[in-house]
Amino acid sequence: MTTPELLDAALVEEATKKSGLIWVRGGSDPSGPERALWHVWHEGAAHVVGDGPGEQPLPDLVDGGSATVTVRSKDKGGRLVGWRAKVVELASGTQAWEAAVGDLKGKRLNAPDSEAMPERWGRECRVLRLEPDLGAGVVPGSDGALAAPPLPSPAVTRNAVPAGLPRLLARRKKG
């Protein structure tokens, strides 16, 4: 690798290791929505688990396909770097799967079945390895706004806030 490629690899690794979330867009629809995914950096790639009951939904990611990954700053939340990734689905029970799941298990918060989680992941979920494709380029920072409309969700506000609520809350704080 040349010096610029080594610097790009170091930037991708450090930014991704330190970020709690990565934003991932599947390769089949480059204009599709990005999803925030929790991950772990293991052996030179980001690993994610999902698509099972109670786990994060994975965007349109297929084995052998590509994805676009955006890494945000942990303290400010701004975009640090974007990179292309090759998607590799790890087969359950393989040595690579066991190693990745060992690290992912330690990062999974609020799991209902922390002890049986690896077995459940092996039966019901997908574990994906997102390998940086540095030949496709790294895009540090951003010149323009990358705001996108929120994805459709059943979680909506049913009614407007009652007009008297702010006064009621202010009275409670005084008393």
Results as ranks from 00 to 15, higher is better:
6 L>W: 12
167 R>C: 02
59 P>W: 01
127 V>W: 05
75 D>E: 14
82 G>R: 15
65 G>N: 05
85 A>S: 09
170 A>Y: 00
154 P>V: 09
34 E>N: 04
119 E>R: 08
105 K>I: 11
94 T>R: 09
34 E>A: 15
27 G>D: 08
60 D>C: 02
52 G>L: 02
157 T>S: 15
68 T>C: 10
78 G>K: 13
22 I>R: 04
58 L>P: 05
36 A>L: 10
112 P>T: 06
31 S>T: 14
33 P>N: 11
134 L>M: 03
148 A>I: 08
124 E>C: 07
20 G>F: 07
14 E>Y: 00
165 L>Q: 02
74 K>P: 00
103 D>P: 00
41 W>A: 00
79 R>W: 10
171 R>Q: 12
88 V>N: 12
64 G>E: 10
76 K>M: 09
170 A>P: 01
170 A>C: 02
141 G>H: 04
150 P>K: 06
1 M>P: 11
168 L>A: 13
85 A>F: 04
55 E>V: 04
59 P>Q: 07
117 M>H: 10
73 S>A: 13
154 P>M: 02
94 T>I: 05
44 G>R: 01
132 P>C: 08
56 Q>C: 09
143 D>Q: 13
123 R>D: 12
133 D>V: 10
132 P>D: 05
19 S>A: 15
142 S>M: 08
123 R>M: 09
70 T>A: 15
58 L>K: 04
8 D>R: 13
18 K>V: 01
86 K>I: 11
34 E>K: 12
115 E>C: 00
53 P>R: 10
76 K>N: 11
45 A>N: 07
84 R>Y: 07
69 V>H: 00
158 R>V: 14
69 V>K: 03
52 G>W: 10
74 K>S: 08
107 K>V: 09
139 V>H: 13
106 G>W: 06
123 R>T: 08
78 G>A: 14
49 V>Q: 15
102 G>V: 03
157 T>K: 15
66 S>A: 12
148 A>F: 06
101 V>Y: 09
172 R>H: 00
89 E>I: 06
121 W>V: 08
41 W>L: 01
24 V>H: 04
126 R>W: 07
146 L>H: 13
32 G>M: 05
2 T>D: 15
74 K>A: 14
168 L>S: 09
33 P>E: 14
158 R>K: 14
26 G>W: 04
79 R>P: 07
42 H>F: 09
160 A>N: 07
56 Q>V: 10
130 L>D: 04
26 G>I: 03
94 T>G: 05
